[in-house]
Structure formats: structure tokens, C-alpha cells
Design a protein around this nucleic acid. Structure first.
Lengths: 224, 224
DNA sequence: TCATTTAAGTGAGTCTAACTCACTTTATAC
DNA sequence: GTATAAAGTGAGTTAGACTCACTTAAATGA
């Protein structure tokens, strides 16, 4: 009765398992998904999965890692066509939001399982995430060097405020509640940051101009 | 051989269980803690815990809820003694950071288990969290009404940027890596926000004064 | 073409930990 | 003192991650 699964290559089978696991994890979450169900979807038996993945947790990390690698895509390339710190910053924020909007289930999974310290710290996934967020840090530091962005705040803090803020803000949407207007939010966040980020300071700038005006007025008075 | 546990009142037993569960969850995390070990610490048998808590998950939510209720304390009261939107904002940021710094294990647990959508949305815990973050929203909205804070950004977005940013930034510390200089960070975050938040806009203000200076200069030139 | 080897696939079984329930025991009320 | 309510028990059930000795299809090589 039990039809045995057709034999295919290691690579194909791994791809199938990753695909099925990704769908199930995204759909039901990590804890709620069972290895048995993943196996059933692939059309093999549980033991087969353990031929390719040491544990359920390793399978999850593989799923996340594969997705991450695919997602990088042309981020850096797209960025090349955009000039000016503000525009580049807004692009990265918008692009991040777009990823969240287009893959809510998967991003929820990622955020949920990302941090579980035990196996995340020092993992390949952490490396990928670091590489991903490093793009933003670079943009910020370029902006600091070119004088467009104030340099009295660590870029890492700004990075955390941006990604942390976005994650928090998008969470209800990722859980299926409400909409995510990515254009408006990208605009708002950039607008918020931008007035905080520029090198120029409101007070010194105002002071400079006030002094200038006063000087002119004195000249005017003495001339008349 | 098996000494039976001394009989104590329902309330006392619940308090004991909550205490033991809190310690164990904080120490080892939710998944890594077993009901058997919690029971052993209290000195009862597993079944006893189920007399008072329907499930492990409900026990966790109770632990978190109890801590939250205790933590509110005199937040609102302290806030009464502080005036000015900036100072009030900085206080709330600093106070939040202080809580993270003083309870890293517990806060890590909270952040890890908070979001698991299934039982969080609509729970008592969500209500408490909402009440907690509402304090910040109120401070922001007061600031908007008094003209100290720009009102073209939703307060909820600012709230998310602040709490999300802090959570992200503190995460390594909560996991035992590095320090958390709460005074410096509170100062930096407030500094970042404050230049973004004021009603006055750097660009329009600068522009206005530049025009004024130019006008005066022209007058001066034509007079001489 | 057939024997040998390799590796994909199997499924029964182990183990752990959450959860259940019929029962026992202690304290309190009358 | 007996009845009763409630605290506590512990042997069991169940679910799901993980193991391993085994089977069998395919590839290899004479």
C-alpha cells in the first residue's frame, strides 16, 4: 500500500523540503508546524528529512537563510542610481517596507524566530542580517562624511531606530491587522529623521542669520 | 517516601508558582523550561500546577502580566514633576531604558514571547502594554497641542520609532553582550528626535531669514 | 547484462514534556 | 466527630521531535 517516494537527487529533494517547510512555517508558524506534516507535503516520510537536516531548528534556519540570500538581489545596484543622502536613505526605508508588505507571513516568521538567542548569535543568518543592515550604515556614514548628516550620533543607533521602528510599526500589518501604506510611511520616517540628521543646526543657523541681519541693519542706520 | 507538600492557601500557592516560573523562564527561556522543573522548585507535583493554570502558556502570560502590573508603579506620578515636552520625552525614554537595564533577562523573555500573535492580540497583556505606551503618546500629543512638537506626523509612528528603536538597540545587551549606557542613549535618542520634532522647520526658517537679510542688503546698497 | 556499490527512502520505535483524571488526604464547618 | 470542600498526587495519555537498522532503486563497472 505505502507507495515509496520517487528517488530524486539530493539537491532536488532539499529544495522540495525547503519549499514545503517555508510554506508551512509561514502559514502556521514554527511551533505549530510539525515535521510530519512537512514530510507529508513533500511526499516522503519523516526520517527522510533528517537525512538532510539535523533538526527542525536547522531546517528553519536554512529556510530563513535561503530566503535572505535571494532577497538581497539588486539592493546595492538600485542604490547606485540614487544620489544624495536623503534620497538614498528614503529608498532603503521604502525598500525595506516593500519587502515587509510583500511577504508579511514570511517576515513575521523571521522576526519571531530571529532573535532566539541560542542559535542566532554567530550564525550564518546573523551574518546575512548584518550585511543587509550594513548597507544603511554605509549610506549614513557617507552622508556624515559628505557633511549632509550630523556626525555626533553613532550610525548604529540610527540604524537601530530605523529598523526597530519600522519593525514595530509594521507588526500589526504582519499579523493581518490593517494596511501598510509604504510610500506614506517611508516619507514620514525620512521626514522625521531628516530634520534630526542634518549637520546644520537650527539654533546656529538662526543665530548666523540673525547676526547677519543685525549687521546689515546697523550699516543701514549709519548710512542714513 | 514521597513527602506530600504542605497545604497552603490557593493565593499563596499561586504566588509561589508564579515566582518559580518567573525565575526559570527568565533564566532559561520559555521553551527550555519545563513544567516538571517549575513544580519541583515549588515542591509540588506537575498536576498541582494545572490546578491553578490551564497551560504552560497561560502561566507565562500570568507571569508577564503580574510583572507588568508591578512595573507601572509611579511612572505617571514621576512624570507630573517634569515640565516641557523635551524633558518629559527624555524621561520616558530614560525610564524605559532603565527598566531594560535592570531586568535584562525578564525583558528578553517579554520581547521574545510578547508578539506570538495567537494569544497576544486582545489579551490582558496587550491591554497593559497599550496602557504603558499610551503614556508616551500622551506626552507627544500634549507637546503637539502646546506647539512644542510638530503635528504633521502621527504620534503612533513616533511611539513605534522610539520603542522599536530602543528594543533593537538594547537587544545585544539583553542577550548578555555589551553594556547599556542609559544616560548617553536617552540623550542621543532625544537629541535625534528633538531636531525632528519641533514645530519650527529649519529650512523655512533659514529661508525666511535669508530673504530678510537680502532685502536689507538691497536697501543698504541703494541708499549708499 | 549482471553483480556490486552507493545513497535515497522507510517505518517502527524511543524519548521527552505537556497535559489529564480518578483518586487520596488534609483542613475546616457544623 | 462526621461531612464536605479543596489541595495535592502520580500514573497515565498523547503529540511530536528525533534515531536507526533496514530496504530498495539507481548508478557503476566488468
Amino acid at each position: 500500500m505505502s507507495a515509496t517516494a520517487p528517488r530524486i537527487s539530493r539537491e532536488e529533494r532539499i529544495a522540495e523540503i525547503l519549499q514545503a517547510a517555508r510554506e508551512l512555517f509561514s502559514d502556521k508558524g514554527y511551533e505549530q508546524s510539525s515535521m510530519a506534516e512537512i514530510a507529508a507535503r513533500v511526499g516522503v516520510v519523516e526520517g527522510t528529512i533528517y537525512k538532510y537536516f539535523e533538526s527542525k531548528r536547522e531546517l528553519l534556519l536554512s529556510v530563513l537563510t535561503h530566503w535572505y540570500e535571494g532577497m538581497f538581489g539588486d539592493y546595492a545596484e538600485d542604490l547606485n542610481g540614487i544620489h544624495g543622502a536623503r534620497a538614498r536613505l528614503q529608498f532603503l526605508i521604502w525598500r525595506h517596507l516593500r519587502t515587509l508588505r510583500d511577504n508579511p507571513d514570511f517576515c513575521r516568521l523571521t522576526f519571531n524566530e530571529f532573535r532566539v538567542e541560542k542559535d542566532y548569535h554567530g550564525s550564518k543568518l546573523q551574518g546575512l542580517n548584518k550585511r543587509y543592515t550594513e548597507l544603511l550604515v554605509q549610506v549614513l556614514e557617507e552622508g556624515m562624511q559628505s557633511g549632509q548628516i550630523r556626525n555626533d550620533l553613532p550610525a548604529s543607533l540610527l540604524r537601530d531606530m530605523i529598523y526597530g521602528g519600522i519593525e514595530h510599526h509594521a507588526w500589526p500589518y504582519l499579523c493581518g491587522h490593517g494596511k501598510l501604506d509604504i510610500d506614506a510611511i517611508a516619507e514620514q520616517i525620512t521626514g522625521l529623521l531628516w530634520q534630526g540628521i542634518p549637520t546644520q543646526n537650527l539654533h546656529t543657523e538662526t543665530q548666523r542669520l540673525t547676526e547677519l541681519a543685525t549687521r546689515l541693519e546697523q550699516k543701514l542706520d549709519s548710512a542714513s
